[in-house]
């Protein structure tokens, strides 16, 4: 049985390149639509046909397990034909430029391309060269809009709201596209956002993003409703940005003791993949306050909502 869709929300733009530029109403529209897909995804019959005949290309220049799988499932559940392309097997390895790849794929007439790239701005560059819709699945340290949307959906389902919640985003803010998208989205929906990190992992100018900045977990987690941990890349652990994983975990790793600084009913999130014992302790990651597995579930629903909302403005829709 199909759940009849109640939301008629349409995203009035061709691409989803970032949270920046989305209005609060558009964000809420996407979240409401995603709620319907959460229900659908919990049924035995998960398939819909709104994207039937459409071609979705997952173009990943950076390795990804969960985001790529999530988009693939989202596309398939909406009835699209999904093709996965990853850099290892693509002609980028043979020296083709990003723009040539875009032009080549464009000629195959896809309807939506989902792109992840290691360089900030690369998805926007690619979007300028194609006729179809482009969804940013993460560009460098810039944005990762569907992650911020799935985080917001997870928070709203567990706390009933986003407005006036205190959200502490902790860890490698400097290199994190997840942090940037989340800061913009949470601010747009009226949350109080804190970033907590050693100064070497905070971008210069972060205080102008409308966030409170803290270099200490006790201070930063005080009274927090949500503790959002970020992944620390392995190459940044040993002496370049922090002295060692041991020292980093000592000061910034989330364990039960540090989590106790937050509100008693605080919830823990992580975009994954986790470095257990580096930024998060296993007991916390798998504990009662963790929403990490639910985030993954919400990921599929949010991506279905984004695909659905964008596809309603595709030509011939």
């Amino acid at each position: 049985m199909n759940i009849a869709q109640k939301s008629t929300f349409v995203l009035n733009q061709r691409h989803l390149l970032g949270i920046e530029g989305l209005s609060p109403a558009e964000i809420l529209g996407l979240l409401d639509l995603a709620e319907e897909f959460v229900a659908l995804n919990r049924q035995i019959e998960k398939k819909q046909s709104s994207l039937r005949g459409r071609t979705l290309i997952n173009l990943f220049f950076e390795v990804s397990t969960r985001t790529q799988a999530s988009f693939e499932l989202a596309g398939k559940r909406l009835g699209a034909d999904v093709m996965n392309m990853s850099v290892g097997s693509s002609s980028m390895r043979k020296g083709e430029t990003l723009i040539d790849t875009a032009i080549t794929l464009n000629a195959m007439r896809p309807d939506i391309i989902v792109v992840r790239h290691h360089a900030s701005g690369a998805v926007e560059l690619l979007a300028r060269k194609v006729d179809c819709s482009v969804i940013n699945a993460g560009d460098g340290s810039h944005e990762h809009p569907t992650q911020a949307l799935l985080d917001a959906l997870t928070i709203r389902r567990n706390k009933g709201r986003i407005e006036r919640l205190t959200v502490a985003i902790c860890g490698d803010i400097l290199h994190s596209r997840v942090a940037r998208s989340n800061i913009i989205l949470l601010n747009a929906l009226g949350a109080r956002v804190r970033v907590v990190a050693p100064s070497t992992l905070l971008p210069v100018g972060i205080e102008r993003f409308g966030v409170e900045v803290s270099r200490d977990m006790r201070e930063g987690l005080h009274d927090a409703d949500i503790v959002m941990m970020l992944r620390l890349q392995r190459e940044r652990m040993n002496g370049s940005f922090v002295p060692s994983t041991q020292e980093y975990f000592h000061y910034f790793g989330l364990d039960q003791k540090k989590l106790a600084y937050a509100k008693p009913d605080a919830l823990v999130m992580h975009p994954g993949p986790m470095n257990r014992g580096v930024e998060i302790d296993t007991a916390v990651a798998d504990g009662a306050q963790s929403l990490i597995r639910e985030q993954v579930e919400m990921g599929v629903a949010v991506r279905m909502a984004v695909l659905e909302a964008l596809s309603r403005t595709l030509p011939n829709a």
Partner: peptide, 15 residues
């Protein structure tokens, strides 16, 4: 240039 705009664009800054 290092600062708010580089941070917003996710680009590494030059101080």
């Amino acid at each position: 240039n290092e600062g708010e705009f580089a941070a917003r664009l996710g680009l590494a800054g030059v101080p």
